[in-house]
Design a protein around this nucleic acid. Structure first.
Lengths: 202, 202
DNA sequence: TCGGGGGTAGACTGGCCAGTCTAAATCCGG
DNA sequence: CCGGATTTAGACTGGCCAGTCTACCCCCGA
């Protein structure tokens, strides 16, 4: 029989890629058969590279999250402009089809992989809140923003930036897709009003 | 053999109750065996009352959502007090263990029951946004709040009220549990600052 | 030339599960 | 007292799936 054994290159990578796609589409229910089939690889090959389905899942999810997480630092400069640039970048990632899918996959596997998911959650939104809070702290010290709880401020801003949009996408609801820049601008302006330095009493 | 067939009363209700508990705990993966076992009912009895597992799920989830949804109307009165009362009620429901569990269950079954979930999503946060927006519209017309997009304002307030808290609970992250009233007060005050009537130019 | 590492296809095991079916038991109305 | 409706326990089917195993193949280095 002709069993064409092509160069044995990145079989592992092909498996990982296929797994990422399928886990994001179907969650952990994606079957090993489906994964190896999409990777174009034999069953045994899969078990040569990974201990079992769980460990593949862990690795695949880690990759996905790493991609979406990548640092998103807040540039100092004119307050409104910095926040606006940050906001647009944040929304782009958090609301991307991939970002939402990862989120959904993680949420549905909290029971099975509680530790992994807590870890990734800390790396994700956790770090995002942290770096934003540091930026806001600085602005508060400069007197550009009113003195307040910096972490809370960061959480509120991030929450407003996504609004109901991520939740709706998690639930499969489509959105009319309105003007991104206008929307984000309104949120940022609102936030700046909310944290404008207190007017000194007469 | 003694097969004690006790009074055949609310078997259906017992099944529904067991299903609600298990679906919220384990999602759709909860097996029919587990459900009938918790309900203390025979396998066939289940199929006497429900067509199949899917229809039980649909009915159980509908019940759960109905419980969490129950109207939450905004009372007119002093703006800050009304919003505060509303906010506390909203958080109580949306952040309750049950509320979070339903949310998680719905999110993980978007693929299987897309229509059901879109429907429930509209009844849930959808209505919440709507009624809050109406209240805010009124306040804007009265001049208590600045003129703005009422729906957006409602979405932003709701988003801030949950902050990162629901997301974290969805992912199984525990929170230090700080002072509810203080927190909500800060958010409401911030929101009121954000939508305070614009100061007329000199 | 030969042997082993990694590959392929596909059969197979064991487990779980949804849904059906049987046979016997209980209750209730007529 | 009888008969139908509902219940029970438990066997059974058919399907899916994770993971193992067999048998064969191909390339490359010793």
């Amino acid at each position: 029989m002709n069993h064409p054994a092509p160069p044995p290159p990145g079989n592992r990578e092909r498996l990982l890629l296929a797994a990422r796609e399928l886990f994001l589409e179907q969650g952990y229910d994606a079957s090993v058969d489906a994964i190896i089939s999409r990777a174009g690889v034999a069953r045994q090959t899969f078990y040569n590279h990974f201990q079992n389905k769980e460990s593949l899942f862990v690795e695949a999810v880690r990759c996905c999250v790493a991609d979406v997480i990548a640092p998103l630092h807040v540039n100092p400069g004119k307050m409104r402009d910095s926040l606006l640039a940050f906001a647009i970048g944040y929304r782009k990632r958090a609301l991307s089809a991939e970002g939402v899918a990862i989120y959904r996959t993680l949420i549905s596997q909290v029971q099975r992989f509680p530790d992994l998911i807590r870890e990734l959650s800390g790396q994700g939104d956790g770090q995002m809140i942290g770096s934003l809070a540091i930026f806001l702290r600085q602005a508060m010290n400069d007197g550009q923003l009113r003195e307040a709880d910096d972490v809370l401020a960061a959480e509120l801003l991030l929450a407003m930036l996504l609004g109901q949009e991520r939740n709706q996408r998690l639930l499969g609801v489509e959105r009319p897709e309105l003007d991104e820049l206008t929307l984000v601008g309104q949120v940022i302006d609102g936030f700046l009003r909310m944290y404008a330095p207190a007017r000194r009493a007469s």
